[in-house]
Amino acid sequence: MTNNKLVVYESKDIYKILYEIKEKLKIDLIFLEKKKDLEIYLNSNPNDLVLSKKKIDNLNQIILNNFPYKINKLIEIINLKILKKNFLINSNLSIGKYKLDINSKKIYLNKQELDLTEQEIKLLTYLNNKGKAASVDELQKDIWGYSENLETHTVETHIHRLRKKFLDTFEDKNFIISKKKGYLIKKFL
C-alpha cells in the first residue's frame, strides 16, 4: 500500500465510510477504539495521522468537530494534512552527521550547505535506508531502473561526483565508502 497511515480513533462510522473510499485516499486505514491502544500504537508510529472528534495532546491530528462533513471536504482535509506531514518529514532527514532537506534539494552540516541533484538525493536516501552495502547492480536497478548485468559506469560516475562534492564542501572524503559488496554511508561501519 502506502507509507501514509490514518488512524481513525473512536469513530467506527467514519472509519467505515473512509474504508469504502480508501483507494482514492491512497492511505492505509487503522481503526482504534481504546485510548490505551492508541497510545501503544503511537509510541511506535508517532508520525501517523489521527482522525478523531476530540483533541488529543501532542498528535498530528485531524479533529472532526463540525459535523456533518461533506466527504469531498474530508478527503481534502486528510490529503492536505498528509502533504504537510510529508513536507515536514522531508525537510529534516538525518544521514549520518548531515541533515538532508529533500524539498530544497540541499544537505547541511552546521552552517554549510550543498546543492544536490534529484539522482543524488535518491542515491543518498537509498543508501541511508539500506543500512548496509548496496551493490552496483542493485543501485543500477533500484535508482536508475537499469536491468542487472548491464555494462555501464553510471553508478561509479555518480558516486565519484558526489564524493567530490562532499570533499569540496565539507572536507569529507569518507562519507560514501566502497566495500567489497558495494557502497555504503560511513555511519553504517
Rank of each mutant, 00 (worst) to 15 (best):
K22L: 08
G96P: 03
L6N: 01
K97V: 09
I102Y: 02
D101S: 11
R163S: 07
N3E: 12
L29F: 08
A134G: 06
K99P: 00
K85W: 05
T169P: 03
I77E: 08
V155L: 06
I27P: 00
K181L: 08
N3H: 12
K106R: 14
M1S: 08
N79G: 01
I121E: 10
L64Q: 05
I143T: 02
K132G: 06
D28G: 11
Y15G: 01
N4Q: 14
D168F: 07
V50S: 02
D168V: 11
L167W: 09
E171Q: 15
D168Q: 14
S135M: 06
K5M: 06
I56M: 07
N90K: 05
K141C: 10
L150P: 02
S104Q: 10
Y15T: 01
K81D: 00
K53C: 07
G182L: 05
G182W: 01
T169D: 04
P68L: 13
E113P: 00
E171A: 15
L80G: 10
K187C: 09
S104D: 11
L123H: 00
E118C: 05
L167C: 02
W144N: 04
K22N: 09
F87P: 01
L100K: 02
E10L: 10
K12R: 14
Q119G: 03
D13A: 14
S52H: 03
D48H: 11
N47W: 10
T157Y: 13
S104I: 14
E148I: 12
K35D: 13
N58A: 10
D37Q: 11
F87W: 08
I89V: 14
I63D: 04
K54A: 10
G131R: 11
E20W: 10
V136H: 06
T2I: 11
Y108H: 04
A134C: 02
T117F: 13
G131C: 13
I107C: 00
K54P: 06
K132P: 00
K84Y: 12
L167M: 13
L18T: 03
L150T: 14
Q61A: 12
K106F: 11
L167G: 00
T154G: 04
I102L: 09
K26H: 12
L32S: 07
K111D: 15
Y69T: 07
L93I: 15
N3T: 14
N79T: 08
